[in-house]
Simulated assay, not measured.
Amino acid sequence: MKSNLLIMAAVALFTAIVLLGGIIVGAMVLNKNDNTNNTPGNSQAVSLDAAPPAAPETISIPGYAQLVMKAGELMQDVELYNPAGNPCYFIISIILPDGTEVYKSGPINAGQKTDVIKLSQPLEAGTYKDAVLKYSTFSSTNDEPMNGANTKFTLEVVE
């Protein structure tokens, strides 16, 4: 019984030594391969001095489901804004579903907003579904046009 126990212990020890040796040899081989891939002149090497690719400039466009205005008045309490961090300024137009432009802003810089807008004509009370907020965008650095957007919303004009 003791001899069987000794044999089993010896086999377990031998197995552990072989397994540990395999792990050590495998790690050495992998480390050697990693070092050869980073040698000068190897086409797979990547220079750490290279500049990372530039992130594309993106423009955040706010969306509105509904705006509410007062019937018969030119001055309206409406907040339109250009999110901070945008690389451009906005010119925002409000266009009725029939194509009539009733408002066009001046330049709205990133991080700025309107509080009051002046319409080109007073509006009649009603619901104007599929009105459009047209965002024309221009570079803050050179005034060149950039990508714009048209977003649909419901304009609710109340008495």
Rank of each mutant, 00 (worst) to 15 (best):
I59Y: 10
I59A: 13
I59F: 11
I59P: 03
S60T: 14
S60N: 13
I61E: 01
I61G: 01
I61D: 02
P62C: 08
P62E: 09
G63L: 11
G63A: 14
Y64R: 05
A65W: 05
Q66I: 06
Q66S: 13
Q66A: 12
L67A: 11
L67V: 13
L67Q: 07
L67G: 08
L67C: 13
V68S: 15
V68C: 11
V68R: 15
M69E: 00
M69K: 11
A71H: 08
A71G: 07
G72N: 08
G72E: 04
G72C: 04
G72W: 00
E73S: 14
E73Y: 11
L74T: 03
L74A: 03
Q76R: 05
Q76I: 10
Q76L: 07
D77C: 03
D77E: 15
V78D: 10
V78Y: 03
V78K: 00
E79T: 15
L80M: 10
L80H: 00
Y81I: 00
N82Q: 04
N82W: 02
N82T: 02
N82S: 03
N82P: 01
N82D: 04
P83Y: 09
P83K: 01
P83W: 09
P83I: 02
P83T: 02
P83V: 02
A84K: 09
A84S: 06
A84D: 04
G85N: 06
G85H: 02
N86I: 06
N86V: 05
N86T: 07
C88F: 07
Y89D: 00
F90S: 06
I91K: 14
I91W: 01
I91F: 02
I92S: 00
S93F: 05
S93W: 04
S93T: 06
I94V: 14
I94A: 07
I94E: 06
I94L: 15
I95Y: 07
L96N: 08
L96K: 13
P97S: 13
P97D: 13
D98Q: 13
G99M: 12
G99A: 12
G99D: 09
G99Q: 11
G99L: 12
E101N: 15
E101W: 09
E101P: 08
E101M: 15
E101A: 15
E101I: 14
V102W: 12
V102Y: 12
Y103E: 00
Y103I: 12
K104V: 12
K104D: 00
K104E: 14
S105K: 02
S105T: 12
S105F: 03
G106M: 08
G106L: 10
G106E: 14
P107E: 09
P107D: 07
I108F: 09
N109W: 05
N109H: 10
N109A: 14
N109V: 09
A110C: 08
A110H: 07
A110Q: 10
G111P: 01
G111T: 07
G111N: 06
G111Y: 09
Q112R: 13
T114V: 10
T114E: 03
T114H: 06
